[in-house]
């Protein structure tokens, strides 16, 4: 289920979709040193409430750096310039799941809620609901090492969603999974209303098909230094044309 700007489920709770959830203008990130590395150059990005935006690009193009800057996790020593307007709070999900081995599955899911200062009983009840939606029912008391790779990632995603932050920042959530599991995870995630309820999602990936399946809009970054080379709204009927333009943008010389 994809959410275009006019999707009805948003109009009940969400503010108008023209409201920007986050905005970045002229963002440049440099890592000074003997060999100065420009990770991002002049990146403009606007994500509206209710929108699911995927950022794709070759590895090393700075897409993870972009997400970190949005999450307020600017890497040590980096020089950041440009204007970044991010809403009150974001929830960032790392590439690796970041689950705490000394907490069972349910307490791990509650970490974000605890940081957000949510009422424990409410968060607990909400978490149990989400365990069902995320296919984790029955594993509430499992230790993290007892979970499969796919379950770990879903649990990490659940932890990220639970605090109800208005902006979700997902850094290749399924990047470490094998191809089959990843496809299943994506099929499942496409049915989860992540960008609903007045939220916005930014997903970083290097997988064009993942981006097309999940996102309303795909932003393509070039090789380092990362620049926006394409900003494409995903058509709701047939993505073949969009897929072609994305692949062209990713590989302008047509070497593949």
């Amino acid at each position: 289920m994809r959410h275009g700007p006019m999707t009805s489920s948003l109009s009940t709770e969400a503010p108008p979709t023209s409201t920007p959830a986050l905005e970045v203008a002229g963002l440049t990130v440099t890592f000074p040193g003997a060999r100065e590395v420009v990770a991002l150059q002049d990146v403009d990005l606007q994500v509206r409430v209710g929108e699911f935006v995927a950022v794709v690009g070759p590895s090393g193009c700075g897409k993870s750096t972009l997400l970190r800057v949005l999450a307020g996790l600017t890497p040590a020593g980096a020089r950041v310039s440009g204007r970044t307007t991010v809403g009150p709070a974001t929830a960032w999900m790392p590439q690796r799941d970041g689950l705490l081995p000394w907490r069972r599955a349910l307490p791990n899911a509650l970490v974000g809620a605890r940081i957000a200062g949510q009422d424990r009983a409410t968060a607990d009840a909400r978490a149990r609901e989400l365990f069902d939606e995320f296919g984790l029912t029955g594993f509430e008391r499992a230790w993290t090492h007892e979970l499969s790779g796919g379950m770990r990632q879903r649990l990490a995603l659940l932890r990220t969603c639970l605090p109800g932050r208005p902006v979700l920042l997902l850094d290749e959530p399924f990047g470490a999974l094998d191809a089959i599991t990843r496809r299943r995870m994506n099929a499942w995630l496409a049915g989860v209303d992540l960008a609903g309820h007045g939220r916005a999602v930014v997903l970083v990936t290097h997988d064009v098909d993942e981006a097309l399946l999940l996102a309303d809009r795909v932003v393509v970054l070039s090789d380092r230094p990362g620049r926006v080379v394409l900003d494409l709204r995903v058509p709701r009927d047939g993505t073949d044309g969009a897929r072609r333009s994305l692949l062209e943008a990713l590989d302008p010389e047509g070497t593949s």
């Binding site: 999450a71 307020g72 996790l73 709070a89 974001t90 929830a91 960032w92 999900m93 790392p94 690796r96 970041g98 705490l100 970490v111 974000g112 940081i115 957000a116 932890r159 990220t160 605090p163 932050r165 920042l169």
Partner: peptide
């Protein structure tokens, strides 16, 4: 560092 970043990324 992974755990510390996770907490920071959730606003900790």
């Amino acid at each position: 560092a992974e755990h510390a970043e996770m907490v920071a990324g959730l606003g900790g």
